[in-house]
Design a protein around this nucleic acid. Structure first.
Lengths: 202, 202
DNA sequence: TCCTATCTGCGAACAACGTTAACAGATATT
DNA sequence: AATATCTGTTAACGTTGTTCGCAGATAGGA
């Protein structure tokens, strides 16, 4: 831990700052993550944060990487669908616990996000599919995880304010007798296998 | 066109305002859509816009609805996969022409967005699947369209700044000899059919 | 030991944003 | 003609991300 550099030692760390920002976003959404609020949460001043991050977007990237570090990647077992499904389920939980994840623009991928891609490449390597197809499959898996995590009662019935019973009869009837509940348990597995076989052609 | 109401007539329309906002967003992203810039584009003042929209978020909703109006929904032909694929391809084009579409939070669905859902319900009605499954299938189709539209050279190689050849060897090798190009033509069809059959179980 | 270079964190400030308040002018109904 | 009501504008408020200097602290070199 030798700094070997003049000047006082830094009192904060990027993971610490990102963790405070994540806690704020979990409570009040991404709008609650302001430079001033994060600074107050870690006990410092807003301009001091710019000694650690170049911009707010970079801080958001650190947040994404921090929560992505929670993913546990099992050793590739040969059952590539099962392996991928296990991690995708974790991603769904991640998106459900941190509903800001999908909106956090990842302008630059953090190391843990890259770890996930690396693991996915290793899992799908035995298939011998072209790398572009593998990347597309992984991107689709990520997107499906985001969709499943964001689903459910994300917003109230205000979304259907413009619903007109005369113009949208089928939709009106469908919403009347069937509120959109959480997706079925095995739906993610079915969709994921459907996507993977469609993309990788196996 | 009788207003039958005192006071001067309004000089603007919501579609006109939304069209100007769409043009701004197409050029400079969603950040370029500020109340002042939109007002300048339509030749008025920022506070005057609040006579037409209650908030900036509502304006964003009008933008989403305006571009969603471009969707052409064919008469259901019985070939529900083909019908759905035709419209989903249009949605991909829409997301590619308006890359801000995915980021525009739809707090309230406009009439044309509801039209799309209504049409989807009608297309999938002959299957006799539970309404929740149909809604899930349509939501997934929308999400896949957004994913396909957002794919490609959306951002430069800055995304992989944190790539470490020692930590991510497979990824490094994959990126070296295969730049992520646009998805194959028939990929969307394969993925969509895979998802639909997985969700609707047919 | 003292000096100096260099780093940290802070107070003030700036431009831009969404939004509101109060007001002048225009217009259709009475 | 009088009145009520709607429109659009100017000014302003609070908040945001970000930058500018500056005071203070600290480690290495003399």
């Amino acid at each position: 831990m030798n700094a070997s550099r003049p000047g006082p030692a830094r009192s904060l760390t990027i993971p610490g700052i990102a963790a405070a920002a994540v806690a704020l976003a979990d409570r009040g959404g991404l709008d609650a993550v302001t430079m001033r609020s994060v600074a107050a949460a870690v006990g410092t001043s807003a301009p001091a944060l710019y000694r650690y991050v170049a911009s707010r977007d970079e801080l958001l990237g650190h947040m994404v990487d921090l929560v992505s570090a929670e993913l546990r990647h099992p050793e590739p077992s040969g059952d590539w669908v099962g392996d991928l499904l296990a991690v995708t389920e974790q991603q769904v939980v991640l998106h459900r616990e941190h509903r800001w994840l999908g909106a956090a623009s990842t302008a630059v991928m953090g190391p843990h996000v890259l770890d996930h891609l690396e693991w996915g490449m290793a899992v799908l390597a035995p298939l011998g599919a072209p790398t572009t197809a593998v990347m597309e499959a992984l991107a689709l898996a990520n997107g499906v995880a985001a969709l499943f995590g964001a689903a459910g009662p994300a917003a109230g019935p205000e979304i259907f304010r413009n619903l007109d019973a005369a113009r949208h009869p089928a939709l009106t009837a469908a919403l009347a007798n069937a509120a959109p509940g959480p997706p079925a348990d095995d739906l993610l597995r079915r969709v994921l296998t459907g996507i993977l076989t469609a993309v990788l052609g196996r």
